[in-house]
Amino acid sequence: MLELRFFEIYRDADFMWRLAEGVWLSVSLTVTAAVAGFLVAMGLAVVRNARVPVLAQFSTCYVEFIRNTPLIVQLFFVAFGLPLLLGYSWPFWGHALLGLALNFSAYFAEILRSGLLAIPKGQIEAAEALGLRRHVRFIKIVAPQVIASVYPSLTSQFIFLFLTTGVISEIGVEDLTHAGVFIDSRTFRSFEVFITLTLLYVAIALTFKACLLAVDRYFFAWKVRQ
């Protein structure tokens, strides 16, 4: 009874192909969503930090709402609710991308906000004393330091979020989890299939970690490390 038959997965070229495509889609969607989410998060953190009326309150509510509701509910709303409400139709991956980007942006915004708060006042005063304009001050002085200081938190948050992206298979995206569920439905070797999937997820997460660490070393080499 207790028999592991991993070969049923890897001897089938179609299954392997699906897994490979799943890995590619999972990785590319997550990375794209993270980049988009980061840009949105930057905006959210800045308006909240600068106390822009209305926008700051909106940013607070948005971040709290996203952080206190499950990703799957957000995804279902974005994939099934919004299109019906506004009358548009996108491919599945479009919904997934929008849902993930919205989700990521809230978590990143929270991290960036704490980074913005931690910037030493002297840095901004020095920039003012040099007569730098507001946007130059932000781009040249504030942003690089904030991003460098919160980069490790952003990295681990990103990895954590990546591990939750399997739920996009539930809205029809043919990601890694979707490939696994498909193979499972053909072979009924659930245990082997999901062990394989788990190993793939962990391997991708470790690869992400290594890449992001290399980026940290390369771009933020000037940073003082403890």
Partner: peptide
């Protein structure tokens, strides 16, 4: 901490029951 929760659920809800029959 590295294994996604979704995979834990699939393993315990589908994988282990099928393995044990």
């Amino acid at each position: 901490q590295s294994v996604p929760l979704l995979m834990l659920l699939f393993l315990s809800g589908l994988g282990v029951p099928r393995l044990l029959g």
